[in-house]
Amino acid sequence: MRLTLVPRRQDFYEVFAALGRNAQATAVMVEERFRGFPDSGVEHGKVKDLEHEGDRLTAELYQLMNTQYVTPFDREDIHDLARAIDDVVDHMEHASDLLGLYRIEATMEQAIEQCGLLLGATDYLAEALGGLRHLSGLQKPLAGIKRREDDGDRVVRDAVAALFEDDDISPRAIIQWKDIFGALEDSLDACDTAAHLIGNIVVKNA
């Protein structure tokens, strides 16, 4: 593999923006799947396709890093940010997959609320990733992600508490929903990690 000395910064920005849009599209799909489950018409395969697209874009970004002598940010920052965005999509895909794996009959309101927060967080993430080129105007989306993550902590605590309010709740339901709530929460946490990494990139490069 040959390193090229001609900077291709544009390519990095474009791939990051595409990763942001892909995370946003995944959140839209997952929210629709949860809200209407099991009759929403959104099969898990559609979510899986978006996850594959994210993997392809991440591989493209790594390929750029491996072939470019000059990168717009530290290689480590690019690597960590790509990984965090990948986690955002992977955890949403996992939550969506669990609906089928666990043969869930219907969703819970708290999970739909988590999906709503992911919609907002990934909107902001896409906005922040689209703004990497100029490293400006990122405060609002980064603060927005933090708010969604804080709200997510509250929602997941309430969701888990709801599973233990009555001794007669099925242990099967507790196991299933703790995993699903956890996967959605992990995705929100990954949004927050990505926001922190973007914040660090701004400090280093602005």
């Binding site: 219907a106 708290q110 969701a159 009555d166 709740i169 339901a173």
Partner: peptide
Amino acid sequence: YRQVWRWAMPRGDRTVDVNVKR
């Protein structure tokens, strides 16, 4: 929920609503 599924319904569970809709 208790009569059909034999367990206590977790708060926020939409299973009954989904079945009623169908």
